[in-house]
Amino acid sequence: MKQVNLDELVDRVLVELAKQSSSSAKKEPLQAGAHSSDPIYFPEDKEMGVEKPKDRESLERAMSRTPARIGIGRAGTRMKTRSYLQFRIDQAAARDAVTKDIGEDLLRELGLPILQTKSADMQEYLMNLESGRRLSDESVRWLEQNGDKGKDVQIVVSDGLSTSAIEANIPDLLPALLQGLALRNISTGKPVFVKRGRVWVQDQIASIVKCKAVISLIGERPGLATAESLSAYMIYQPSAQTVESDRTVISNIHRGGTPPIEAGAYLAELLDDILRYQASGVTLARLRSR
């Protein structure tokens, strides 16, 4: 019995030593408190928490292949303190990101006119879906007078649930998408920004500008791994009979998913298909797989 305990102890010491030497760089900030007034710099990278992996290199490689929280080890069956706190920090940040407002300088730089929905504020936007699905009367008038009519494609950008997604992706995505469409001789109306918009506002916009297809680039609800994820919703000639499965959706556009420039090119290709097949959503998928 004594022997076993001693072996265990030796093992544990060896593991601790190995951990300290392999991750000393990461741990340094935590220990930097030479002066008690120095703050704690809490590490943001995933911690390898498995104490004695069968193959450390293989585990490192696996951890690098996915943003998922793997290789984090356990305390009993629970998460270790560092991964638990990291999880809670990421959730707190995501929570805060929802209520952040969009920087209007960026929209000016991108030359996007700002339209409003019927949502007066974030609370109304969150709790009343209908308010984000319709443009305000003033924006309807503006679009009727100033929108480009009868084009192949109308692009709509909207903050949705994440302004960070717009800031991080649109500066690269929008030019790539416009260029991709131009190369395919697809005409586009002047893109617009819709503040606090839901996906379905695209149906109203399409009916006003009378485009063939409409694409909305909308900030997704922030996740823990990223608050910068953007989705693209596309539909061919929406009408009163439109159902959700008529929309083609590409989600997870962000640095760690489909990068914005690549997404721009891909979306142009998809829109080309939508115009060619005169269909979107499940119908398009069926026609394409034939």
Partner: peptide, 24 residues
Amino acid sequence: VPGGDDVMLSYQDTSYHDDASLRE
């Protein structure tokens, strides 16, 4: 879900750790 964080669907669900814990 690894660490309770679905990195594709962007929501939280029970983790591998929670699974083992609920059994115990």
